[in-house]
Design a protein around this nucleic acid. Sequence first.
DNA 1: AAGCGTATAGTCCACGTGGACTAATCGAAC
DNA 2: GTTCGATTAGTCCACGTGGACTATACGCTT
Lengths: 206, 206
Amino acid sequence: MSDPVARLTPLGVAVLALLSEGDMHPYEMIRLMHFRRDDRLVTITNGTVYHTVGRLERAGLIAEVGVDRDGNRPERTTYTQTDAGAAAVLEWVRRELPRVDRPAEFRVALAEVHGLDRDEAIELLQTRREALSAALDSLADGQRHALGKGVPAQYLIEVDRELALLGAELAWMDATLPRIADPDFAWGPEPTPSQRYLAQRKAARQ
Amino acid sequence: MSDPVARLTPLGVAVLALLSEGDMHPYEMIRLMHFRRDDRLVTITNGTVYHTVGRLERAGLIAEVGVDRDGNRPERTTYTQTDAGAAAVLEWVRRELPRVDRPAEFRVALAEVHGLDRDEAIELLQTRREALSAALDSLADGQRHALGKGVPAQYLIEVDRELALLGAELAWMDATLPRIADPDFAWGPEPTPSQRYLAQRKAARQ
DNA sequence: AAGCGTATAGTCCACGTGGACTAATCGAAC
DNA sequence: GTTCGATTAGTCCACGTGGACTATACGCTT
């Protein structure tokens, strides 16, 4: 119920992930997320972001660190990630990564999987692989059953597509798991260009 | 704004599609949709279904056709589809079928594509095919760009998966469009087993 | 015949979403 | 030097969702 991890939304996770790269005010998050095309994964509007930030603060996952002001522009409230916030992202990723329902959550979890240890990530993805395989079998079974009962094929086009996509995801997993298990595949924190940019800007301010 | 088609939700379309097979009360819709595993496409709860039915009625897409009662059980309100409702489903499918954003809407639209003429369906899907292809190119471009800027590969796993799934969907389309264009592939209204069952039950009641 | 679980049919409400709106400021063109 | 558009920063609200809750009736056990 009041478990803050359970109440995290995909956008909440995206905001926490942003804040792990540096303190920020909501409007800056919106710009940065648009720049990074995070709107591919979650819908980013003023309404959702400001509201989400408010909820994250009430849950103690982020905290206000001051109100600054640039010239005469509106003042802006800057937030920082708390330890509880950093832990909550990882816990949320652990929960969502192996689930095959909730595709939207999974994509965000996959985008944040680099925060986990390599071995744990592989194990969770392996669990998902088995669940995907079972879902595919069950759907294929349903298709056979429906065709057997005389349901005309034109009513089963969507199922046909779903089977194709499930198969493709399984194939991707079977190609990807060995790839990231390979020690030659880099893992763990390595600065991205935008992290280097943020760090540089922070240093310049001091 | 007040265009009823624009305000249709996936569940609303699913409800309208059900009613095109016969008059029904909400509780029966819920059972039937669960039986058909429509919960694969939309989330079905009492809250959503009853609320959706209310909205559809206020929009004039369905209409009350009487309150009957089975023994001493609670009375139930039966609804029927209006002409406007039947037209709205087709219009909605035409709108959602070619769009590549909104995957949830697309799946429901694809499940209802059999209501359109074969030629129109193929044309709309062809449009989607081109949009998908463009989306794939643009995402692949973004990936190349990110790698070129030095973003480590472990941060791009989700993009890699997305590219694989987009490719698979394109392949499915290229296999499916010729398949349904073939005159040997049946198209148009053909009774499904559950439609036959509903028709039979209706005849028995009279 | 009392008790218990499940099916039937529906209401209610807290919450998250996403789009509309406000308001000030800066830059550029005319 | 003023008008106009874009940018900055944030508030507000209508709506849809989904889970919790209610209440009656039927069937099965003990």
